[in-house]
């Protein structure tokens, strides 16, 4: 007989190990996909020399980063300068903890039944954990910009922090309207609630607000003002080199993966398969879990593709347009959405 607390700990350690490694692997896939899809959209080849179809390119890039000289300029605040990449990387890997990426299954370990839920932590505050941890990344940007003691870094850090906090409010309000529908902050409840109808049908406006805010939160085009190359060189990571420089990018891609996963979970039914296809297939229980994980992965991959698609479709915003959109349009719009959701729930 194995102690149940030990089982819990081992199961969660295995889940964490797999999830963090899958995220890091997906970051590498995304780096390649971004370059290949950009190339495809611009009608050129993109990296195709390293390995078949260039699939080993991100590994080559990673090794190159690792063996580059790590320059620490003498005018920086050394402690904060070294701290910033870690501050930005840790929350980006932690936010995925609450996302349910599949249903659950059970097996026997010796004679102890083990129930594995495909979600690292099913917290009762669920989505609030995401909002809280994701906003910690702002500290990384500000610390990195300030510690570099370079005007480009300074302004990149200031701009991105102002941008991120501005779009956090519409994002929070879009989440509020989803929570009103479900009556729970727990993400497993939110997913279970969407078994028959996805939230995007009931919350089209909320979905649009969340999508725009997610683009702004991850500092992706068309909102990549912090690193607008033409005016700010590289933004907050101008003075960084070697693996510290790449840490900022790993964090950015990890954030993209988590926000795509959250869009899927909050608005597109999470791991559920639409139109009752799964019931029609009549699969054994073990295969159902696989199909759930697959369904979740395909939806998330689609939103990751949307990130790249938008990048080459829309031009970059000007900074005043960005702040105007956040404060003058999205904020009132999301408040209206909350009121409309309230009326809708009361009537139906």
């Amino acid at each position: 007989m194995v102690n149940s607390a030990t089982v819990e700990l081992v199961v969660s350690a295995v889940k964490v190990f797999i999830v963090v490694n899958v995220i890091l692997l997906m970051v590498m896939v995304m780096i390649l996909a971004e370059r290949r899809i950009s190339a495809f959209i611009q009608d050129r080849y993109g990296p195709n020399r390293v390995g078949p179809f260039g699939i080993l390119q991100p590994i080559a890039d990673g090794i190159k980063f690792l063996f580059k000289e790590d320059v620490i300029p003498y005018h920086v605040d050394r402690f904060l300068y070294l701290l910033a990449p870690a501050v930005i990387l840790v929350p980006s890997l932690m936010t995925f903890a609450i996302v349910p990426f599949g249903s659950s299954f059970s097996f026997y370990w010796g004679d102890t039944p083990v129930h594995v839920r495909l979600q690292i932590a099913d917290l009762n505050i669920g989505i609030l954990y995401f909002v809280g941890i994701a906003s910690l990344a702002v500290y990384g940007l500000v610390i990195g910009g300030y510690a570099s003691n370079n005007k480009y870094s300074m302004f990149g850090g200031l701009r991105s922090s102002a941008q991120m906090i501005s779009y956090e409010i519409p994002m929070g309000l879009a989440i509020v309207s989803v929570v009103m529908l479900t009556g729970s902050l727990r993400l497993s409840d939110i997913v279970a609630d969407q078994q028959h109808m996805w939230n995007v049908v009931r919350q089209p406006l909320g979905f649009l607000i969340f999508l725009v805010a997610a683009f702004a939160e991850t500092n992706r085009l068309p909102f990549d003002l912090p690193e607008a190359e033409q005016e700010l060189v590289g933004g907050y990571h101008t003075e960084y080199s070697s693996m510290k420089f790449s840490a900022f990018f790993i964090a950015e891609y990890a954030n993209m993966i988590t926000s795509s996963a959250l869009i899927t979970t909050l608005f597109f039914g999470g791991y559920h398969v639409p139109f009752g296809i799964l019931e029609a297939l009549n699969l054994p229980v073990a295969w159902e879990v696989v199909v759930h994980v697959l369904s979740f992965s395909i939806k998330t991959a689609f939103f990751l593709f949307v990130y790249l698609w938008v990048r080459w479709t829309l031009p970059r915003f000007r900074y005043d347009q960005l702040m105007n959109l956040g404060w003058k349009s999205l904020l009132p719009l999301s408040l209206v959405n909350v009121v409309l959701t309230g009326i809708g729930i009361a009537i139906f």
Binding site: L93, I120, A247
Partner: peptide, 29 residues
């Protein structure tokens, strides 16, 4: 007890972050 997995993923994230930053310090020219 629900928060134990959060501590596990915090530890894992710290290991990854510290790992890549320390590794580059050791091997870079």
């Amino acid at each position: 007890v629900e928060y134990i997995p959060i501590l596990v993923i915090l530890a894992m994230a710290l290991i990854v972050a510290a790992g890549i930053l320390v590794l580059t310090h050791i091997v870079n020219p």
